[in-house]
């Protein structure tokens, strides 16, 4: 299935609005200045996801995941490399850099879980609100493992396409990179496109 450039631009727009809301929440939660942006959004086929995310192959990853269902169904993930996850936790919580990453698994899981919750909530919430869609959400969970465990886990193989956005967190002059991916089935994708087109007409 194909999404036109205009539609993708609109989705990018919505995602960036959501990002802004998420950043504001993180700012007030953590009392530090964070900017968030996702400059480009692409639609990739699930089979091509590995190529798109090849920077994450052969290393340990952390991800926050939420499922949503209603007018359209899917799963969203915010993925960080082990290293970026550590940096993010350091930046957000001010935990000493000398603390070995291994010692912080529980703290990191909790932090990423909440950051993921806020960021994904903001994006999906913005999309569903702006597009006037009715959706329900699962409670977020945090996952740890390699690319196959996380991206190729029990959610893989059933989707028509994956919306992919590279997210940049800028915290206290540190640039920390993560990726948001949204798995959508063919019906959901079609509904999303229809909703976008409806939305543009109403603008």
């Amino acid at each position: 299935m194909h999404i036109s450039k205009e539609n993708l631009d609109d989705i990018s727009e919505l995602v960036n609005i959501g990002m802004g809301k998420g950043a504001a929440m993180l700012n007030s939660l953590l009392e530090s200045h964070i900017t968030l942006n996702a400059p480009v959004i692409t639609l990739v086929r699930e089979a091509d996801l590995k190529r798109a995310l090849n920077k994450y192959l052969n290393q340990e990853l952390f991800a926050a995941q939420m499922s949503f269902y209603g007018d359209f169904n899917g799963d969203a993930q915010l993925i960080f490399s082990h290293e970026c996850a550590g940096k993010l936790v350091h930046a957000l919580l001010g935990v000493g850099v000398e603390t070995r990453l291994d010692d912080m698994d529980s703290l990191r899981a909790e932090t990423l879980n909440e950051v993921g919750n806020i960021v994904i909530n903001s994006i999906i919430g913005t999309i569903s609100n702006e597009l006037n869609l009715s959706m329900k959400f699962s409670i977020p969970c945090c996952m740890q493992g390699n690319f196959e465990n996380i991206v190729g886990g029990d959610i893989a193989g059933t989707h028509e396409g994956v919306l992919h956005a590279c997210v940049h967190f800028v915290v206290a002059e540190l640039k920390i990179e993560g990726d948001i991916i949204m798995f959508l089935g063919i019906d959901s994708l079609r509904k999303l496109v229809e909703a976008i087109e409806r939305y543009r007409k109403n603008l």
């Binding site: 939660l29 919580l93 879980n113 919750n117 959400f137």
Partner: peptide, 16 residues
């Protein structure tokens, strides 16, 4: 945002 969007929220007592 939960009241508006119905998206669940988690609070961690360790962070908050």
């Amino acid at each position: 945002s939960l009241f508006d969007d119905g998206i669940p929220v988690i609070f961690s007592s360790r962070l908050h």
